[in-house]
Design a binder for these strands. Structure first.
Lengths: 252, 252
DNA sequence: CGGTACATTGAGAAATTTCAAAGTTGGTGG
DNA sequence: CCACCAACTTTGAAATTTCTCAATGTACCG
């Protein structure tokens, strides 16, 4: 797995080759300045990230499963991951998409047992912080406390928005909203060029996120493509008519 | 049940009409021992609830609206309330049902501007704590910190469950899940007798919670009634076949 | 009483799912 | 380099779920 990650960067990994896991990756982390881990931990030498090894999981593999004891607080260093809940009948709901530099779930930071699973969308590099580190960091440092409050509140607002999405909006609106949302997040990271950005989610994953069947997700994507609004496929999203896409995807 | 409201004026009352309550309400609060406010604040005399007035809002009126500056941290003292988001097109999604003794949204505890609205389902009595009180309380007292963490994590797990509900389950399953969920919460409060408990939500509210139309919610409720599973109406839920209801409502 | 909000019912339309089959893609081993 | 395999995507047709519109019935309140 690790070998896969180091030797065969997927088409979606940045031009700069990913660091081998033995190099302190945070030192060269492209998004370190915007990453939660930077604000949360790099300041205190004793708790610096650098001494923690990263791990890797190949695309489409699970990083952790609901019900397993948590190893600590999970942060994605590189690649896309999704947080999801699997039902006994085989259906699953993707709860959120996690990008590099983000905590997988700020609100679940002290949960000893996870209520959700996490899957790698692309090849992913990630690391854990121990509960003790995180708890002490937050209680020691009021600024960290506020940062963490802000992250938790943001995650919560985002969950509320998703509820509105799933409860009140059509298939097309949900898919457009997902594309717009990912576009904005990629834009912040400087990953959008000529209206194109990495979009590694499969149609099955898009369906699991939006609460649709893969077949219907495919039809909606075809329709968006056919109407020259955007073209999603092969790991890349190309936005053609941004105004129209945002109009469809925004709350009405 | 809410005799104190008889003397509050008609439904045309301004939303923030204060309750006439001269009695310190927490002293007689039936659910005080299980309420978040008891654990969070009653211990410290300087911040005791007792000196804060409660306010009242009549059934079907809004307690606060999204976008308005928050007055503080909202706790429901008596009655049912719902947290919701209203879309410009008139649709709305109910995010959660809040019962007496509960914080309206633990994760939003320090948000100066609310992202959601709150509506009274029944006549409701409630109060605010100031941000300063809450923040100081949490930072001063590690036990409170942990309590609050737990509340936030629970709210978050609940939001995730609702996402699964809205994304993956049928109308009948969602409605059954709502009924079972409220039954369990009422059971904890000792409000279930002979399979009956208060259920003041209108069909419109049930629909807004489950992401259905009121007409379809009505059909599902009729079906449950017709099949002798449960009978929802006139503010009361009567559970007839609990096993079957739980089977329908639980994750499959 | 009379009105208003809420609940129920029917019929047809629209959105989404299901099932099934065929086309594509990318990776693997010969 | 090619053939093959597995996973993913696309398309069609029919079934199902849910919505919309419209009309009627019912409870509660002043």
């Amino acid at each position: 797995m690790l070998q896969t990650f180091v030797d065969t960067p997927s088409p979606l990994t940045p031009d700069h080759a990913p660091a081998p896991a033995t190099t302190p990756p945070c030192a060269i982390c492209r998004i370190r300045k915007m990453a939660c881990c930077d604000g949360l931990f790099d300041g205190s030498p004793g708790r610096s990230l650098i001494k923690n090894r990263t791990r890797a999981t190949a695309a489409r593999q699970n990083i952790c499963r609901a019900g397993e004891p948590n190893e600590g607080v999970l942060v994605i260093c590189e690649g896309w991951a999704v947080r999801f809940i699997q039902l006994p009948n085989g259906k699953r709901q993707i709860l959120s998409v996690v990008l590099p530099g983000e905590l997988v779930s700020p609100a679940a930071i002290l949960e000893k047992q996870s209520a959700f699973s996490v899957q790698a969308v692309t090849d992913v590099r990630y690391r854990y912080f121990t509960f003790a580190e995180v708890r002490a960091g937050i209680l020691d440092n009021p600024a960290l406390f506020d940062t963490w409050i802000r992250l938790t509140a943001a995650e919560h607002r985002s969950a509320d928005k998703r509820l509105v999405d799933l409860g009140q909006r059509t298939a097309q609106e949900r898919i457009a909203a997902l594309i717009v949302h990912m576009m904005l997040r990629c834009e912040e990271r400087g990953e959008v060029r000529d209206g194109e950005f990495p979009f590694p989610m499969s149609q099955q994953q898009i369906a699991d996120f939006t609460g649709l069947t893969p077949v219907h997700a495919c039809r909606v994507l075809s329709s968006l493509r056919h109407r020259a609004i955007c073209n999603i496929g092969r790991g890349v999203a190309k936005i053609i008519d941004r105004g129209e896409l945002e109009r469809i995807g925004s709350f009405k």
